[in-house]
Nucleic acid binder design. Structure first.
Length: 254
DNA sequence: AATCGAATCAACCGCGTTGAC
DNA sequence: AGTCAACGCGGTTGATTCGAT
């Protein structure tokens, strides 16, 4: 297939965005939306390619972006979701309100991955976080109308309870053996079990309307959820399935 | 105070997917 | 059914900042 060039390089600006460009982009999207990223920069009078505009909006300018340090609950959720899903950052981001896939990816590579690796050897502690510094560069310069202070968690709850730890060896093989660790227990206390027919029948028999209860959905990102892909729907299904399976297992152990 | 390496994060690149024609 | 344009995602890069020496 012939691929369209990422952007015509001629005359188009690259590199860091200026506050003026940010304001132009935000103002244009607030007025006209972003139904066509390709055409947007021209309409808005920006010397950027549509891809660059889209990235800037999604990762930085969207009003529902939550800036600031990741909470321990968020970090725990990322670790657990990554264990289930692998590098499906957008799917993971969909479970963390206000967080972007890019941000989660960065946090994982610079922080959480090491923690997981070290804790797999010992019961390691979190690496020191020296993040607190420049998280407000443009966030402060560009407080959106609905944005909240970075310290606020917006009253949004995470979709997973921190104590639960659900992991798989491969995110793509949903019929594999998987382990479920007990709340607050050491990894040595985890037990492995095979998914059997009763699991699937029990889980799949759950009413459809229970899906989403207690779960954050992609709708949190209202702006982009207008075009859900079937792949994401499918992934949401499996994430939901795993989480509910986790609940079932936890209850059965009480 | 200067230098250097590590950490962080915004932005870019390229590929796969999707939908319109 | 085939082609193409556009979108979205994940991997990677490069600039900046920070801490240690």
């Amino acid at each position: 297939m012939v691929r369209a060039p990422c952007c015509e390089k001629m005359g188009l600006k690259r590199g860091p965005w200026t506050a003026e460009e940010d304001m132009t982009l935000v103002a244009h999207i607030e007025r006209h939306g972003h139904s066509n990223w390709r055409a947007l920069p021209k309409q808005a009078g920006l010397l950027r390619c549509g891809k660059s505009c889209r990235l800037r909006w999604i990762n930085y300018l969207r009003p529902d972006i939550k800036r600031g340090n990741f909470t321990s609950e968020e970090e725990e959720a990322i670790i657990q979701l990554h264990a289930m899903l692998g590098n499906r950052w957008s799917t993971i981001a969909a479970r963390l309100p206000g967080r972007t896939d890019n941000e989660i990816k960065n946090v994982w590579h610079t922080h959480l991955k090491k923690r997981v690796q070290s804790s797999s050897k010992t019961s390691g502690q979190a690496a020191p976080n020296r993040k607190a510094k420049k998280l407000s560069v443009a966030a402060s310069a560009l407080e959106g109308p609905t944005s909240e202070p970075a310290s606020s968690s917006s009253g949004q709850s995470l979709s997973m309870s921190p104590g639960q730890s659900l992991s798989t060896s491969s995110a793509d093989d949903y019929s594999m053996a998987w382990s479920l660790e007990n709340t607050g227990s050491s990894s040595s206390e985890s037990e492995e079990f095979q998914i059997d027919d009763s699991f699937w029948s029990e889980t799949l028999a759950m009413s459809v309307d229970s899906f989403g209860s207690g779960m954050e959905t992609n709708d949190t990102f209202g702006v982009d959820s207008a075009s859900p892909s079937s792949t994401n729907d499918e992934m949401d299904f499996w994430v939901t399935l795993f989480m509910q399976a986790s609940d079932i297992q936890s209850l059965s152990q009480i």
